[in-house]
Amino acid sequence: MTGPSAAEPQDMRDMFRSMLLIRRFEEKASEEYMAGRIGGFLHLAIGEEAAVVGTVSAMRADDPLTSTYREHGQALARGTDPRVVMAELLGRSTGLCGGRGGSMHLMDRSRSFYGGYGIVGGSVPLGLGLAYAIRYRGGDQVSVTMFGDGATNQGVVAECFNMAGLWDLPIVFLILNNQYGMGTSLEHASAEEDLYPRAEAYGIPAWKVDGMDVMAVRGAVAEATRMAREERSPVCVELLAYRYRGHSMSDPDTVRDAEEKERWRLRDPLITFERVLLGEAVMTADDISAMTAEVEEQVEDAATFAEQSPEVPVGELADGVYANPFNDDARGGALMR
């Protein structure tokens, strides 16, 4: 049950470019991490580019998007400058969030990307609240909230399915099922391995698509957002996908079966989409080489920009705890001064 994809050749080229950018950006981020310039957790979405780009390409620019901590791709696909994303990963003052969030907490409100969140399942009610605000103001946007297979076992996600179904909120729940919650496989964590029926239990139309096929994802999300926009119904789509790296850079990925990984490698969304582009004569091999070189240059530029950006002044440590601050105490304390 995928809807009309209606992608023009230019849309397809843009989608491929976006997928390439995410792949190359994350490979570069991995190098930066190994070089010690990125700290904390770094969760790569390599392998999941089709799910991310297919989703974003089917959304309107003013449809709010929320995500998990694996969200570099969402920011890039939404059009945020790779320079400020990389600078945020490096914790620099030029970073998207001023070095306060890091890899897990990117937000670009100017592009209606309402953020990446670090508590599994915890961002889903925020996406629901964005949908609530749309309805409250009489808008025609649709809130799209992406979360993983692991989140579907959190109680708050069930709470959100219930309220969305109860109040017919304009939201698309996107379960990006990469089949592992950190190192625990879906079959070890979920009583039922199909996840979308959980939304159906609350009266929400739901289905599953191939999350490695960017055109299939785009078609499904286009149909889901159309239903949410026009029929005022919440929708749930499960995207079956696979990540090629461990949970984060600190995960050596020794648990997952090598044969399984190899099987999914054959379905690499960039390679399969490249075949489509060549087969349908949307791009030539030369076009692809040129685009790849351009993207690689853009990523190198982003890394150079980030590395050369200044650190955040320590004197700004306590700035921004409150929108209406009541002290200038550098310890961030509660006292009136």
């Binding site: 929320t66 925020l126 609240g129």
Partner: peptide, 10 residues
């Protein structure tokens, strides 16, 4: 948890 989060999102 659900309605508090919803309100935060709004």
């Amino acid at each position: 948890a659900g309605f508090t989060g919803l309100a935060i999102g709004a």
